[in-house]
Design a protein around this nucleic acid. Structure first.
Lengths: 176, 176
DNA sequence: GCGATGTTACTCGGATACTAACTGTCCGAGTAAGCCAGG
DNA sequence: CCTGGCTTACTCGGACAGTTAGTATCCGAGTAACATCGC
């Protein structure tokens, strides 16, 4: 299992669609976002509730509701998304092996408890480097980089796909 | 589950004992090393075979056999140990979400395959930063730092523990 | 006394559970927007 | 014309199964060192 889960990737792709819409700040439903990318919709709903609790997106309820970014794309970093989805789990969990040393025979001295253990310190610094790199990139950066790769016709077709999808479903007794 | 497993921690602690022995290059059996630190011995044996395959330690078979470092402590980095135990697994696995976009309807264009996807690139750079930090620290560095924290009496008692342990078991019909 | 045999402790590798996390699905409750019927 | 009810599509949250990786244990095979036994 990779440390950064698939959920993070799913969420980032969806957030990119949300931030990439021209004119900004329009909202989209989870189901449309998931179907557009071939992702499991129910699972995405779970991920979006996590994003909402982290304050990255804002939900509007009811019919024609959906999610929109709660902040500007430039104010949301990849690290924010990773922490929101994966819960800020540690890269490494120290098991405090030093305290189990057989030489102590049950009563370990006080110097083994001093934080952090030497090996743990190395892992913490490595994790810090990783987090710094993730924090350097924002949704705006990613969206801009994606825009340089994708042809404009693709962006247009995505917009029309979402629009026709939104138009096809309307509340009330439409099909009766 | 943390990305850097407990096995890496176990291995690093054992390697520190191996590199910290004064006079260097003496060997110790897996069972002694495990019992000294209260670690599962059978599991440690598996980890040491991984270390051996990676060329970090050298095994001598038979009675009074054991493991010794294959290189100088200054020539073994924490990254070497992580890769040997955890198999160099990726921090993030790209699922190539772009190729599933519903707009394509089965026939994705060629530009989605260009490596790597924008999100993947960010994760790769973050992983690279982490690996650089892990590669900066060697066993010699760790051993030196540990030596500044632990009292000298502790090191002496560990040596005597290992020696008495080695002396208590001898082949042949010792206990008859 | 010297070589053959046996015992012991080690490495090596496979087979097998157990546990935890991630992934994905299903379902019910609550809410807002629009449509329709009745006053 | 206006108000109340109804339908719909959404969010929200819990419950649950499948898969995978890490953790841990057990066991058998092969090997080297040393003690003992037999010549």
């Amino acid at each position: 299992m990779s440390h950064i889960s698939n959920g993070v990737e799913y969420a980032l792709h969806c957030l990119l669609f949300l931030s990439g819409r021209p004119g900004g700040a329009r909202e989209a439903s989870v189901r449309d976002l998931a179907d557009l990318q071939g992702l499991p919709a129910d699972y995405m709903a779970k991920l979006f509730t996590k994003l909402s609790k982290a304050g990255l997106v804002r939900a509007t309820e009811g019919v024609r509701g959906g999610f929109a970014l709660a902040r500007a794309p430039a104010a949301i970093s990849v690290l924010d998304v990773v922490d929101a989805i994966d819960g800020g789990k540690a890269l490494f969990e120290c098991r405090e092996v030093r305290q189990r040393c057989a030489v102590f025979e049950g009563n370990e001295p006080d110097w083994t408890g001093v934080p952090p253990c030497t090996i743990h310190a190395v892992m913490l610094s490595a994790e810090q480097r990783m987090r710094e790199e993730l924090a350097r990139h924002t949704l705006a950066d990613l969206a801009h980089r994606v825009a340089t790769v994708t042809p404009p016709a693709y962006n247009q077709s995505v917009v029309t796909w979402l629009d026709t999808r939104a138009a096809s479903k309307r509340p009330g007794r439409a099909e009766s």
